[in-house]
Design a protein around this nucleic acid. Structure first.
Lengths: 224, 224
DNA sequence: TACTCGATTTCGGGG
DNA sequence: CCCCGAAGTCGAGTA
C-alpha cells in the first residue's frame, strides 16, 4: 500500500468519461495495482478510481512532472497528472482476515423461517427458498386454514419487492395443487408507496422487528 | 485529512453489526470526522467506515493503548482499537472542485430524444420526461402510423426497468386521448430476463449504441 | 426535509 | 464465468 498526497489532475475513460481538475488529493495505490483518489470529504466512495485487476505505470517527463497511467483489461484507463507531491510513503499490510457481518437479509430470513407465526397467527413453514421458474420464493407457508401463503422478505420494503412477490403469486396460483396462494410482504421497514401497492393487490404487509426476533430465538444459540 | 497505518481491531454497530479482527490497515480520517478503514486489496469500498455527519473521539488508556470511537447522530458507532501505529500524518487538502462526468443515462436520453428514429423507423418525439401521476416517462413519441409510443431508457436494461415501463403503459392507456400506447425498452445492454419479460408483455426491446449515437449528433457541438 | 432513482454502483452467492 | 440480487449502498434531483 502506497499513500501519496499530491496536487493532481485525473482523467478517466471507460464506461463513461470523467475529469477532475487540478487540486490536492490523497492517492491510494493498493498492492494489486488498483488506485483510489480521495478528497477530504464526501463518503467512502473515492472521487475516482480504478478497480483491480489492473496495471499501474509511473513515468516522469523531461521537466520532472510525474504521470500515472492505470489500465484495466477491459480498456478502461485512469490517467493522473502529478503537479506537486506533499507526501509519499509505502506500507506492508499483509492480507486482511476479512469482515464478519450479522443482521443482513439472510439472517432475517432464517429467523422468520424459525418463527413464521410472528407474521400471522397459526402460520407454519412449508419450505424456505421454494423454487419457481422465475426464482425462489423466500418462504412458502400454510396458514391456520391450511391455505398456502408466499412470504417475500426484505430488509427495506420497497416497490420492487412487491412486484417480485406479485410475480411469484401469479405463477404459484396457476398451479391447481397450490392455489389459492396469498402473499405476505415482510420487512423491517415498509415504504408508504410499497404498502399502498401491496394492499391494492391484496398482499398483507408485516413489519418485522429484527431484535425482537433474535430474542425469540433459542438463547443457547448465542452463548458461544 | 489524517492518514494512519496501524494494527487495529474494528467493531461497527448500526444497521447491522460487523467485526474486523486485529490486523494492519490504513485508517483515513477526513476533515468532517468520517473514517474509512482500508485493507491492501478489494476495490474502492472500505472494509468498514463511518459516514458523515459524525463525531470522532480519541482516548488513550493507562497502558497507552489508543481507541477511537466514531458516532453518528442515528446511533451508529464505529469503535477502533489501535494496537500499534506504523504511520500517522495530517494533510491540508482544501475543498475539491469536484468531478465532471459524461456518458451517464441522462446523456443517453438526450441523444435518443434527438434521434428517436434510431429506435424505430419513422418514430418522432412528442415530449421528453412526459409527466404521469407515477413519474415522468423518458420519451413519449408517435410512430409512423401516428400511434403513441412510450420509451423507457436505461444504461443497463434489467427487470425493474420493464416493470417501470409496464406501469407507465398501464396508466397512459387509461387515457382515451392517448391510447393505444405501445412501449419500447431501450438500453445499451438488455439482460435476458428483462428481454423475456418485456416481450411477454408486448414491449419492444431496442439495444442502443451510445458511441454511434454520439457520432450521429451534430459535430459542431463537440468542437472543444 | 423526505422520497425516488441512477451508479464506472460494488459485492457475494449459485448455477 | 455469467447471472442475479442485496447493500450500513451513496448522492443528486425534486416535490
Amino acid at each position: 500500500m502506497r499513500l501519496v498526497v499530491a496536487r493532481c489532475q485525473v482523467d478517466y475513460a471507460g464506461r463513461l468519461t470523467a475529469h477532475l481538475p487540478m487540486a490536492t488529493r490523497v492517492l491510494m495505490i493498493k498492492a494489486d495495482g488498483s488506485v483510489l483518489v480521495h478528497s477530504d470529504g464526501g463518503s467512502y466512495k473515492p472521487l475516482n478510481w480504478m478497480s483491480p485487476p489492473c496495471t499501474f505505470a509511473e513515468e516522469v517527463d523531461d521537466e520532472g512532472v510525474a504521470s500515472w497511467t492505470v489500465t484495466s483489461k477491459t480498456g478502461d484507463t485512469l490517467r493522473i497528472l502529478i503537479e506537486e507531491i506533499q507526501h509519499d510513503s509505502s506500507h506492508d499490510l499483509g492480507i486482511d482476515p476479512g469482515l464478519q457481518k450479522d443482521g443482513v437479509e439472510k439472517h432475517l430470513q432464517e429467523l422468520l423461517a424459525e418463527h413464521p407465526a410472528t407474521l400471522a397467527d397459526g402460520l407454519r413453514l412449508v419450505r424456505r427458498e421454494y423454487p419457481t421458474p422465475i426464482g425462489p420464493v423466500d418462504l412458502l407457508c400454510r396458514d391456520a386454514d391450511g391455505n398456502r401463503v408466499a412470504v417475500e422478505i426484505k430488509r427495506r420494503g420497497e416497490i420492487d419487492g412487491v412486484e417480485q412477490l406479485t410475480r411469484y403469486l401469479e405463477l404459484l396460483n396457476r398451479d391447481p395443487l397450490l392455489a389459492p396462494v396469498r402473499g405476505i410482504f415482510a420487512a423491517q421497514l415498509i415504504k408508504p408507496q410499497a404498502r399502498t401497492l401491496a394492499e391494492d393487490r391484496g398482499i398483507t404487509c408485516a413489519v418485522v422487528d429484527y431484535d425482537a426476533l433474535r430474542g425469540l430465538d433459542d438463547p443457547t444459540d448465542r452463548l458461544f
